[in-house]
Amino acid sequence: MHPLVLERPRDLSAALSFGAQAGRNDAPVEYIAGGTDMVQLLQEYVRRPDRLVSLAGILDDGIEIGPQGLRLGAAATMAEVAAHQAVVEQFPLISQALLNSASPQVRNQATMGGNLLQRTRCPYFRDIGYEACNKRAPGSGCAALDGENRWHAVLGTSDDCIAVHPSDLAVALVALDASVELRGTGGDRSVPLSDLHRLPRDTPHLEAVLEPGEVITAITVPATTAGLRSHYLKVRDRASFEFAVVSAAVAIETDGARIRQARVALGGVGTKPWRLPNVETALAGADFEPAVLRQAAALAAEGTRGRGHNDFKIELMQRAIVRAVEIAGARR
């Protein structure tokens, strides 16, 4: 681990004053919360901040449900949120996505805010034995483009980066129109989750839109998405404790045997959590006929770009959407 100073501020305003920069990979001052991802990256020299600002004990960890919807404190753990009764009953998609993530030990430690800002699993990002990684070392190139890229993205890619955003939670949240509340020295603001992460473009080291000092304080999910029929489908090489090969988060409103409105997002395939408005439009008014679902899901392939080993994801993600819609439709 690169030698660093661990700051343990007494309260949030003290924490903000350090000017820590979340969501970019070249910052000298960073935050640490649950640390499940950060510690790995520090140990392997992928991130080398000089100063680490601990958020332990000073961030909201409450879980509240009210007329406005759901509010998850940024320090609530994955385990707490997954098991929370109101979440389970009204936002089962979130609970399901969380329970399909990581292991019980990790879920007991990892926080909401940290989950959203965790880094890609791209092996070239995580192994400093590779010089080329634009995300880790801006301008150094991308070893994944023509390398072992079975894990990599087919949506939102650029010629500089094809790394997948690994969070399951973010995929469910983006489907449910969630937002994040940010606090900085300049005050509070709310950002739709779909705008939190940046596309890699030619600056893949800039991962999120947080300003210096800013921290995620809470996640809010609007009441309008409560109680929807939903399903989080995760395809992977083993039954548990693995990142998605492909995942699909689906929430639908039905009108008899037809879909009135659908929300569809994908994981494991995008450089950020990937919402699919074109698929949603095609599903609106559709019945559950497999051919109809299949046709709507095919629109997910628009704009995809495979790099060889990951070409299969383009087909698999369409099948995952169909299956998730079918399962969600069959739920009461």
Binding site: P123, Y124, D127, D146, R238, A239, S240, F241, E242, F243
Partner: peptide
């Protein structure tokens, strides 16, 4: 291209877990 093991960790090198 260079003989490095790209999944030299227990997250990407999958071995069966209890659920398997």
């Amino acid at each position: 291209r260079n003989g490095r093991v790209t999944n030299a960790n227990l997250a990407e090198y999958a071995v069966p877990v209890h659920a398997d």
